[in-house]
């Protein structure tokens, strides 16, 4: 457990920690984007590139959450986590509009697998 910074410790510490170490490091990019977006032409190739980088970054976050799972998700072995993601991917690639079906099928595969293995 990370201990509070001593001279800032007090009943409000959890709130302070949230603002300093989670809110600000996240929000700063949104603020920076507002400052930058006013100088970028909406139809420019730069924006196409920016969108491609954002998409690849998000896909990377997905891969990372599957390789290094948070909390109790670790009870599912790697092959099961990858398999559940594969089921979702296959369905959404075949039926582009079936978001609900794809999510539920992936979830069913994961939870069914954990239940069967335990």
């Amino acid at each position: 457990m990370t201990q509070p910074i001593p001279w800032l410790d007090g009943p409000l510490w959890p709130y302070l920690a949230l603002i300093l170490f989670a809110f600000l490091p996240t929000e700063i990019w949104r603020w920076l984007a507002v400052a930058l977006s006013r100088r970028i032409d909406p139809d420019s190739a730069v924006l196409d590139w920016v969108r491609a980088v954002a998409t690849a970054l998000l896909a990377g976050v997905v891969a990372k959450l599957i390789i290094a799972p948070p909390g109790v998700l670790g009870v599912a072995p790697l092959w099961l986590r990858v398999g559940a993601l594969g089921v979702t991917l296959a369905i959404i690639l075949i039926w582009r509009r079936r978001i609900v079906v794809a999510v539920l099928a992936g979830e069913a595969a994961l939870m069914g697998g954990i239940w069967a293995l335990s």
């Binding site: 990019w29 920076l32 507002v34 930058l36 977006s37 924006l47 920016v50 980088v53 954002a54 970054l57």
Partner: peptide, 13 residues
């Protein structure tokens, strides 16, 4: 969270 920079720049227009 760096992804929010390109994401936000892309949607604000």
């Amino acid at each position: 969270s760096l992804r929010f920079l390109p994401m936000t720049v892309a949607i604000l227009p």
